[in-house]
Design a binder for these strands. Structure first.
Length: 497
RNA sequence: CGCGGGGUAGAGCAGUGGCAGCUCGUCAGGCUCAUAACCUGAAGGUCGGAGGUUCGAAUCCUCCCCCCGCAACCA
């Protein structure tokens, strides 16, 4: 059995989950379910990134113990996954002991490879912020928050020799040993390698960053985000613990899902670290974009922040899952619009899919059709192949569209064959043939839709009186002769807007 | 001269050399199995602008205009 290890970026628990997290979770879950249908041994990681000066600061501002705040926020991410029907196999938290141990093991490997060195870092440090500021953030040379000129501060910390791996990473991407989807992002990463990846600062003095993973054998230094957070993809498999069996079984990762903002870290730093440590690199990176709301960046001040739970309450979970996978280009930015949502819901879900299920099952019941195990594959030819190609090429939107096109052909087929007319003419044989074909078509389309709208498809399988332990292997057979189907309730009822 | 993405029908998008396409919306017709759903047809575009290469350009080249990201220690 093939294994499939799927990762997504871990969420920074400085705030609450937003639509961007939801987007990634749903994409990941759809891909995860697709591979389950393929019959693979799927392992899906998820979790939270819980260190860093921002979290330290937020906790202090809120007057909370750091661990307390982190626990609280972590729970909101766990809850949102549950709400979304996103099922992960492991939930990694970077503040957990076993993660810290793994991160330290990885650090030691890099050190042993001679890729970690000490150097001084010079920056503009604002005492008020307790952090380094960027030159571009300054207003008249002063910190905009504290209206004070930051001090030029020099500190010793560790660096990672990423520059050493620049060419090697470029070769790996060019040869598709490391695939990057979509192509535009691949080009972007190649261009970065072309310019030359630079060494990265890898630690912070404890006095600057007190909340993090200790650097092995140096009591004064704490790991900066790279080794701490990126290592989660292997520590969640037990890397660095007493039991590395999952690491041996599932690594390397088959697909790592990330947002476009962190491409350079995953395509550059992370790969460099793995090369240095002598660990295999991921096979592919899938890069998605951002989601806007009504054409604008979601922000509290604009008041256009979309709360996923409200949408779910109004339209149902699968409608949200469907909207995000069908409407947002998988590798690009997309928009969340209430108007579009209503259109997609009624046109694709209610009218196309939902109504098709209703009319087919209604006729089968009404005309008391004795279903025949035969399927006219014409119309279905090539659909599954294209659908698969799209999912594997990290284009969920096109995959869904492929199924929608197939649903169209089924609706058209009904018009062309007019089963109700056939029954009136007493042509039971032909009507049976057509309706058996339609039931089988609905079954096949539903299988392909399961990764996207699992709850709905399971309902349809219930109406069809079929077991809901679905797999793509079921596409190779047809429904049994004489199979009895049940009746259907509307899958996507009209929603008053 | 920083890097990149984009400008195609009312809206949203596909389309990298060969009669300009899809979805939604609009209009007209058909059907009655179905969630007033479904099917067919029509209207609607000088493919951001200018120039060039070519028998032929949305697609290749040059220049210009407009929008949006990124510019590495915030993740």
């Amino acid at each position: 059995m093939n294994k499939f290890y799927l990762c997504n970026a871990i969420a920074y628990v400085n705030g609450k989950p937003h639509m961007g997290h939801v987007l990634e979770y749903i994409f990941a879950d759809a891909i995860r379910r697709y591979h389950i249908l393929k019959g693979e041994d799927v392992f899906y990681q998820n979790g939270t990134d819980e260190h860093g000066s921002k979290i330290y600061k937020t906790a202090k501002d809120q007057g909370l113990e750091i661990q307390e705040m982190v626990d609280k926020n972590n729970q909101t991410f766990v809850n949102v996954c549950k709400l979304l029907n996103v099922e992960y196999d492991v939930w990694i938290r970077t503040s957990s002991d076993h993660h810290k141990k793994g991160a330290q093991k990885l650090w030691s490997k890099l050190d042993e490879a001679g890729d970690i060195y000490k150097d001084s870092y010079e920056g503009l440090y604002c005492v008020g912020c307790e952090a380094y500021l960027n030159e571009k953030d300054l207003v008249d040379g002063k910190c905009p928050n504290h209206l004070k000129e930051p001090e030029k501060l020099k500190e010793e910390n560790y660096f990672f020799k990423l520059s050493k791996y620049s060419d090697q990473i470029k070769d790996l991407i060019e040869s598709d040993t490391l695939k990057i989807y979509p192509e535009g992002r691949r080009n972007e990463m190649l261009a970065l390698c072309e310019e030359g990846l630079k060494d990265v600062s890898f630690s912070r003095p404890k006095k600057v960053l007190p909340w993090g993973v200790n650097v092995p054998d140096d009591d004064d230094q704490v790991m900066y985000v790279w080794c701490d957070a990126l290592s989660n993809y292997i520590t969640c498999l037990g890397y660095g613990s007493d039991d590395e069996s999952n690491f041996e079984k599932y690594w390397p990762c088959d697909l790592q899902m990330i947002g476009k903002d962190i491409l350079r870290f995953h395509g550059g730093i992370w790969i460099g670290m793995l090369l240095s440590a002598g660990i295999e690199i991921p096979k592919a990176l899938g890069v998605h974009g951002f989601i806007t709301s009504e054409g604008q960046k979601m922000s509290k001040s604009l008041g256009n922040v979309v709360d996923p739970s409200e949408i779910i309450e109004q339209y149902g979970l699968d409608a949200l899952r469907f909207y995000l996978t069908r409407e947002v280009p998988t590798g690009d930015d997309g928009d969340f619009s209430k108007e579009r949502f209503a259109i997609v819901y009624s046109s694709d879900l209610a009218n196309n899919y939902g109504n098709l299920v209703s009319r087919v099952l209604a006729m089968v019941n009404k005309y008391d059709v004795n279903i025949k195990s035969e399927f006219d594959v014409e119309g279905f030819n090539g659909v599954f192949e294209k659908y698969s190609e799209y999912v594997e090429g990290f284009d969920l939107k096109k995959a869904v569209e492929e199924v929608l096109r197939y649903l169209d052909t089924l609706n058209t087929l009904i018009e062309e064959t007019k089963p109700w007319a056939l029954m009136k003419e007493g042509n039971v044989e032909e009507a049976t043939k057509v309706l058996s074909n339609l039931v089988e078509g609905v079954r096949r389309a539903s299988i392909m839709l399961w990764p996207f709208i699992p709850g709905t498809v399971e309902k349809v399988f219930g109406y069809l009186n079929l077991e809901s332990n679905i797999s793509f292997a079921d596409l190779e057979s047809t429904i049994d002769d004489g199979h009895q189907v049940g009746t259907a309730e509307p899958l996507f009822p009209r929603v008053e807007v």
